[in-house]
């Protein structure tokens, strides 16, 4: 996951050739951008308008009688709350497993030098790029053999592992930025490495840990394919999967309710993204993998 990076440029200086060229180019650039932006926004407009329209179809149109009826219709334990609770359990579980494993791994990798560090970090980097869809068929086979199908904890551990390489990479970079001198003082006072990690390093990298947590949470929340394959019982399925059955199996599709459900399901992710982009937008561009 990457963050919006605001690149506010200072206005072009004075009457140089570049400055005036820049100003001349401004209006066409504005128009071109606006057209592109409209193309990107239009498909989403349907989602918003259909959610407010009890008679919605696939057309984008202003609702004749705008109402919250669609939202009311999906606000039931069976349709919305249970799947959202499952999504939360899966995503939070995945994020916690990631954070614990990544912090533990990052500490020695960041603080001690070893011949093992470099190959391990390159393997981790390699792991960040492995296409997860490619391993879903074998993972299913493996889960059948180990009798782990339809198990929430097993699904959480698998999902955590798919994001773990990126989590380790980011966590180590954040930990490297915490000066080691602070810990040395604690070591002098006889604190163990674990105590130093808990009382000094982790509080100082709070923000970074928040980013890792949210990054993993967003990924898990939006994941459709993994729970679609690994969780069979409807009562265990997250919103990403339950929404699909909503779309495919109910015969006549209630478009408005589908849109309302989509919006309710998307809101947590949008909020979390804004939190990260706002809080760290200027200080944190593309996560570890891009900048190295």
């Amino acid at each position: 996951m990457t963050m919006l990076r605001r690149t506010v440029r200072p206005p072009a200086p004075g009457p140089t050739a570049a400055g005036s060229a820049r100003r001349r180019a401004r209006l066409p650039a504005d128009i071109a951008l606006a057209v592109i932006g409209a193309c990107f926004a239009l498909p989403l407009l349907w989602l918003v308008l259909a959610a407010a329209d009890p008679q919605a179809g696939y057309q984008t149109r202003w609702p004749q009688a705008p109402s919250l009826a669609n939202f009311q219709a999906v606000l039931t334990p069976e349709l919305l709350f249970q799947p959202l609770a499952n999504s939360f359990l899966l995503s939070a579980g995945t994020a916690v497993v990631n954070l614990v494993a990544a912090v533990l791994a990052a500490y020695p990798l960041s603080r001690y030098q070893s011949r093992f560090n470099r190959p391990f970090m390159y393997s981790v980097l390699f792991g960040t790029s492995l296409p997860v869809t490619a391993i879903m068929v074998p993972v299913y086979g493996l889960f059948v053999q180990l009798h782990l199908l339809d198990s929430m904890p097993a699904t959480i551990f698998f999902m955590a592992t798919t994001t773990l390489p990126m989590a380790i990479w980011m966590t180590k970079n954040f930990m490297d930025a915490v000066p080691v001198e602070l810990e040395e003082a604690a070591w002098m006072d006889g604190a163990s490495a674990l105590a130093a990690l808990r009382t000094i390093v982790l509080p100082l990298m709070r923000q970074g840990l928040g980013v890792v947590f949210i990054f993993v949470f967003i990924q898990a929340w939006g994941n459709f394919f993994v729970p679609f394959i690994l969780l069979l019982t409807t009562a265990k399925q997250p919103a990403a999967v339950s929404i699909f059955s909503f779309f495919g199996q109910h015969g006549a599709i209630a478009y408005g309710q589908l849109a309302a459900f989509s919006i309710l399901y998307s809101v947590p992710v949008l909020v979390l993204y804004v939190v990260v982009a706002r809080g760290l937008g200027s200080s944190f561009a593309l996560s570890g993998a891009m900048k190295g």
Binding site: L109, S110, R111, Y112, Q113, N117, R118, M121, Y122, L125, W169, K172, N173, F174, M175, D176, A177, V180, G288, K291, G292
Partner: peptide, 8 residues
């Protein structure tokens, strides 16, 4: 942000 592999 420090680069990979360098470590602390």
């Amino acid at each position: 942000l420090p680069r990979a592999g360098e470590g602390g």
